[in-house]
């Protein structure tokens, strides 16, 4: 029996004016996947993630989430259906605290976000869950600080915490370690490695250490199209992939 496919794109195309940013990408992600999406700068990785998560609408093609055709669903509806993502550039609430951010996310997940008659914190089960999540990511110490004042690495961890608070089936991580200083990097790698096994994961990353440490399968995206797909060993030894990266003068392997 083949594993359940949680996320799928069929012939996905996105054009911006004359530029084809996503070029007929057909792709599927099974349960429990640890999949890395790599490719040179401008290959269309973030566009692809934006299409999957509903920030952009495709020019043509279809997207399926756990069997349902979600092509025309809003980002919000996809989030409720179990699709969570982090952003390459932090998209957080600068004026809230991490605990508030997670309380908010949990409340939305449980459809309790519009409650206006009871104070935040009245749902003690939400508080406990938020506290546990912060502990899981090792950022309990900054639970009550203003997010806007946190160190960059802590914000990156909060990005992941928010996505996890959605209890997703599929998690899209868009360069989780991008721009993180070396001494905070290890913490993020540990967090990514320890993500729940039942969540299907897509990781966009430039850091090949992270990719090869973590991924069980890899897709290479070039000029918006799927260039090659395979196991880490296959990709590492594929001369065409080397060619693409050498052409970009960006070999981190």
């Amino acid at each position: 029996m083949s594993p359940r496919i949680l996320l799928e794109s069929r012939d996905l195309v996105r054009r911006f004016g004359g530029i084809v940013a996503t070029d007929h990408v057909t792709f599927s992600l099974p349960e429990g996947a640890r999949h890395a999406l790599i490719g040179p700068n401008g290959a269309g990785k973030t566009t692809f993630i934006n299409l999957l998560s509903g920030v952009l609408t495709p020019t043509s093609g279809e997207i399926f989430l756990d069997g349902a055709n979600v092509t025309n669903w809003s980002a919000r509806k996809r989030a409720h259906a179990g699709l969570a993502r982090t952003f390459q550039i932090n998209q957080l609430f600068a004026d809230l605290t991490p605990i508030e951010t997670l309380m908010l996310t949990i409340a939305e997940r449980e459809n309790a976000g519009a409650a206006w008659w009871r104070p935040v914190g009245a749902r003690t089960d939400f508080v406990d869950e938020a506290v546990a999540l912060l502990a899981q990511l090792g950022i309990s110490d900054i639970a009550h600080h203003r997010v806007g004042e946190l160190a960059y690495g802590k914000q990156r961890l909060l990005e992941i915490a928010v996505a996890l608070a959605q209890k997703p089936k599929v998690l899209l991580l868009d360069e989780p370690a991008a721009g993180v200083p070396e001494h905070e990097r290890e913490q993020i790698l540990d967090v990514v490695a320890a993500l729940p096994k039942d969540v299907a994961l897509i990781l966009i990353e430039h850091d090949m250490h992270l990719v090869f440490r973590f991924a069980k399968s890899i897709s290479v995206l070039v000029n918006g199209g799927l260039f090659v797909e395979g196991t880490p060993e296959q990709i590492a030894n594929d001369p065409r992939v080397r060619q693409v990266y050498l052409g970009e003068e960006e070999v981190n392997v």
């Binding site: 980002a75 919000r76 409720h80 600068a94 809230l96 939305e108 976000g113 928010v162 959605q166």
Partner: peptide
């Protein structure tokens, strides 16, 4: 709290499934 979040970052509020 959700209003303050919308003011803070609308992209993220949609991503976490907020209407």
């Amino acid at each position: 709290l959700s209003l303050q979040a919308i003011k803070g970052n609308m992209l993220r509020t949609r991503a976490i499934g907020m209407p």
